[in-house]
Design a protein around this nucleic acid. Structure first.
Lengths: 341, 341
DNA sequence: TTGTATGCGTTATCAA
DNA sequence: TTGATAACGCATACAA
């Protein structure tokens, strides 16, 4: 008849300390509302029993979880790592816990995870990019869960966002490319379907072409998932065309790194034979050789501000304003004027 | 007197379908125990109300969450990304949800997150490496939460693990280095305090030296966090010494990539002037030039098997056996014989 | 096959 | 300052 060891509850602590459960609860949540003598006794019981509050019960009773959910498209590369780390750090500082899921770029998985997070009592959600089924936003509204969109800035959309203009950033980069003298421009884009960041990056290039008096539809474009090998393959395909592009603009640094690796393998010199550009300025961009000309995104700043804004929303003291993060073109050696002839 | 729109509950669905809450619950959890006609009616109500079960309530009532928690040291680089993705994929397949936190290599943060996950009703936990305060394992035992240790294999320890021998893997790599003719060997290790993987990788090198008849204490060693810039700095420091090492073995690919970048900046040719090796074989290892000789870790296999084992533990049908994942030395151009003289 | 009733561990309201 | 007690939303043993 040994007793099964099991997690102690509020009740156990109350008994051990000779007080009511209400008092124990108060000691934990608003210690100043309990006289010191009682509090000491209670805290001692908490310690000796190794008590940890049951979260589910607390959420049910308080209707508040101090938990924020985030769903990112992938953990497979560093694109979101830095920003998310800063997001988490800021949340911790303010007493919130972060729960992360990755959707593998699948809208269905994302929807399932949104439901899971909401059902789990998340006080607020961070999502990447605006584009998703309208009914998801309705669902979130019905459950009264605030959503913040990051990695994208669109003040005209109903959702509050903390991010940058993908169109504008890529426009600037394309300008730099054009200024360097390039006219035969190709682009390796991420999959645009359901991904407004990818869409806007292509738009940015097209807009710059148009502004320069070129035909935006003449842009050679390959769409492929954000993976190193895909970037390599797309690069090979583009360089097999006639005429060859003189520059290949990639949707992000991962694709660009793949392209660069393939260039080495094919014996194509960068930037002498062809220039390559990236996007994001993750560490990888500086490490490869030649280092990548790319768009620097201040991920830490974005993550921190996103956390502050989302918490404000959750606590009902948000100004409702989207926040624009500034990006900057970073010139490194992967971009040079086109080869003569 | 407008009614506030709020999330529908089991009760709402029951009313809408004209049945009891028990029946609705059964429709959701064991549909075969309800006659089709009733079930259809209920499901329709569920649909039209947009009902999502309240997770906290479910956990409290069922004492089971179908949630697995994982705490990794960092999301800042790709070391854990691949394995974790595979872990999550396998969990999903088996109906479990994964919650991830990162501890920033801090034992205190990790402990806090373990408590958070347990309080949240996680059915099981995945932790990286064995070394942590004994009281944490006691806490977990008391709460009856199974733990699986990954990224490390130690059949002799009480915790079940799914991982590889860090000592053995590094031993093999060091053998390759010695066979290539190197004798002045330096190592850039990760911080060993509280990190058994880092400790064992150093041991592996020392063991190989000893087996070769060299003095294991003669190994030049720098300890530094796993960051690209730290690797760069350590490399510069090592190359400033006299005599220079002919090879620098790094604790992982991130440090190695940093070392390689610094070599470029300093105009030191790799592998002609000095060889560099990594560990993990993340994508980065193949992309840098020259590509890194490193230890390939089958991260996906490890992640998948870890998920299967942990679920078995949670469901009380584990064989209690740790699983060893095989690693392999990958020879690439960053390793060559030492320069003559 | 379906319904009733109880308990899960907290928080919060109201009294004392 | 403290204690009873009613929710919170669901699962499940037991009844019907």
């Amino acid at each position: 008849m040994g007793k099964i060891p099991s997690a102690p509850t509020l009740n156990d602590v109350a008994k051990a300390a000779g007080v009511s459960t209400a008092t124990v609860s108060r000691c934990l949540n608003s210690p100043d509302r309990v006289i010191k003598a009682t509090r000491d006794r209670v805290m001692e019981a908490v310690e000796s029993l190794g008590y940890t509050p049951n979260f589910a019960a607390r959420v049910m009773a308080a209707k508040r979880s101090f938990t924020i959910g985030a769903i990112i498209p992938t953990m497979d590369n560093a694109i979101f790592a830095r920003g998310l780390q800063a997001f988490q750090d800021q949340l911790r500082e303010d007493g919130y816990t972060l729960l992360v899921s990755s959707s593998a770029y699948s809208p269905d998985v994302e929807e399932e995870q949104i439901r899971a997070l909401v059902a789990r009592g998340a006080d607020g959600l961070l999502l990447i990019g605006h584009e998703r089924d309208e009914k998801i936003y309705q669902y979130l509204a019905k459950h009264q869960v605030p959503v913040l969109v990051a990695w994208s800035y669109a003040p005209d959309l109903p959702q509050i966002s903390v991010g940058f203009s993908n169109t504008g950033a890529m426009y600037e980069l394309a300008q730099a490319v054009l200024t360097a003298g390039h006219r035969r421009i190709a682009m390796i884009s991420g999959i645009r379907q359901g991904n407004d960041r990818a869409q806007n990056r292509v738009s940015g290039v097209r807009d710059a072409l148009q502004a320069q008096g070129c035909d935006p539809q003449a842009l050679t474009l390959i769409e492929t998932p954000y993976e190193i090998e895909k970037g390599a393959r797309a690069f090979a395909e583009l360089m097999a065309r006639d005429p060859r592009p003189t520059v290949i603009m990639c949707g992000n640094d991962v694709l660009a790194a793949g392209a660069l690796g393939e260039a080495h393998r094919l014996g194509i010199a960068v930037p002498q034979d062809v220039s390559i550009t990236g996007f994001d300025d993750i560490e990888l961009a500086e490490i490869v050789s030649p280092p990548l000309t790319t768009v620097h995104v201040p991920h830490r700043e974005m993550g921190r501000k996103a956390a502050q804004q989302l918490i404000a929303m959750v606590e009902g003291r948000s100004d409702g304003q989207s926040i624009c993060i500034n990006t900057a073109v970073v010139r490194r050696n992967s971009l040079a004027p086109p080869p003569a002839g």
